[in-house]
Simulated scan of single mutants.
Amino acid sequence: MTAPQRLTDRKREAIVVAAIAEFRANGFEVTSMDRIAATAGVSKRTVYNHFPSKEELFAEILHQLWASSVAQLDVSYAGDRPLREQLRDLLAAKMQMMADANFLDLARVAIAATIHSPERAQDMVNRLSMREEGFTQWVRAARDDGRLSCSDPVFAAHQIQSLLKSFAFWPQITLGQPTLGAAEQARVIESAIDLFLAGYEVRPAHLTGTVP
């Protein structure tokens, strides 16, 4: 009973690999499920058995790229660890994803595909925002532990991630700039953490000069 499952997994992986190649080479609109099936060496029915639509398949690819960058990372909040260390781990994983050539190419495909379709754009935004929920949960947990002061964890999580994207995502997507080197990545990450903690970290009274 396990052998058919392994075969199914192999077919699913082949479909994803084929879809990445087709989306990168031809864009979202031109790529068809027929073309993906042919490239993967499976039937069109098999593709639809795994992915009900092209949008679902594209979303799964983006999810896998994100998941691969955090596969070895525990994103849960730890009350006994410095906030800076935890944020550095989280942002390093995010930076790793944004430096992935596959991810950048597919992000360009996604943006091009959504320009003329507001409904599709909203759907993809919703799917991607779900993938970042782990970061929001971390912020909420740190706030509930009394170490961050923010009324809106979703906003705060989006804010710090946007600081990374302004240097390591949008210039590469819109202007064709090269991905950041290791030193520049570290500089962007540390700067983002400085700004985030300056705005939200709850500091002991003796460090702030506040009299109890």
Rank of each mutant, 00 (worst) to 15 (best):
residue 167 F to M: 13
residue 181 G to C: 03
residue 163 L to W: 04
residue 183 A to S: 04
residue 175 L to D: 13
residue 180 L to S: 11
residue 164 L to R: 01
residue 157 A to N: 12
residue 164 L to G: 07
residue 186 A to W: 00
residue 183 A to N: 02
residue 161 Q to C: 03
residue 179 T to N: 04
residue 174 T to G: 05
residue 184 E to W: 08
residue 154 V to S: 15
residue 188 V to E: 04
residue 180 L to K: 03
residue 188 V to F: 04
residue 188 V to P: 05
residue 157 A to M: 07
residue 166 S to V: 00
residue 181 G to T: 01
residue 154 V to R: 13
residue 173 I to P: 08
residue 179 T to A: 06
residue 183 A to F: 00
residue 176 G to K: 07
residue 180 L to D: 10
residue 162 S to F: 08
residue 162 S to H: 14
residue 171 P to M: 09
residue 173 I to V: 15
residue 177 Q to R: 13
residue 164 L to K: 11
residue 187 R to I: 07
residue 182 A to N: 04
residue 177 Q to M: 15
residue 173 I to E: 09
residue 179 T to S: 14
residue 157 A to G: 15
residue 155 F to M: 11
residue 159 Q to Y: 04
residue 149 S to N: 15
residue 184 E to N: 10
residue 151 S to T: 12
residue 176 G to D: 07
residue 179 T to K: 06
residue 156 A to Q: 09
residue 183 A to Y: 00
residue 166 S to W: 00
residue 185 Q to K: 00
residue 149 S to T: 10
residue 179 T to L: 03
residue 175 L to T: 07
residue 170 W to L: 14
residue 166 S to T: 14
residue 173 I to T: 15
residue 171 P to T: 06
residue 152 D to G: 07
residue 164 L to N: 07
residue 165 K to N: 15
residue 159 Q to E: 03
residue 177 Q to H: 15
residue 160 I to R: 00
residue 167 F to D: 01
residue 179 T to W: 07
residue 174 T to Q: 14
residue 160 I to T: 04
residue 151 S to C: 04
residue 160 I to M: 05
residue 160 I to Q: 09
residue 163 L to P: 09
residue 149 S to V: 14
residue 158 H to M: 03
residue 157 A to W: 02
residue 168 A to Y: 01
residue 155 F to H: 13
residue 177 Q to S: 15
residue 160 I to H: 10
residue 172 Q to H: 13
residue 189 I to V: 09
residue 151 S to W: 02
residue 176 G to C: 07
residue 164 L to T: 08
residue 156 A to G: 04
residue 155 F to G: 05
residue 150 C to P: 08
residue 181 G to I: 07
residue 189 I to G: 06
residue 170 W to N: 06
residue 157 A to S: 15
residue 188 V to M: 06
residue 162 S to I: 02
residue 169 F to C: 10
residue 158 H to R: 09
residue 162 S to T: 12
residue 178 P to S: 06
residue 187 R to L: 09
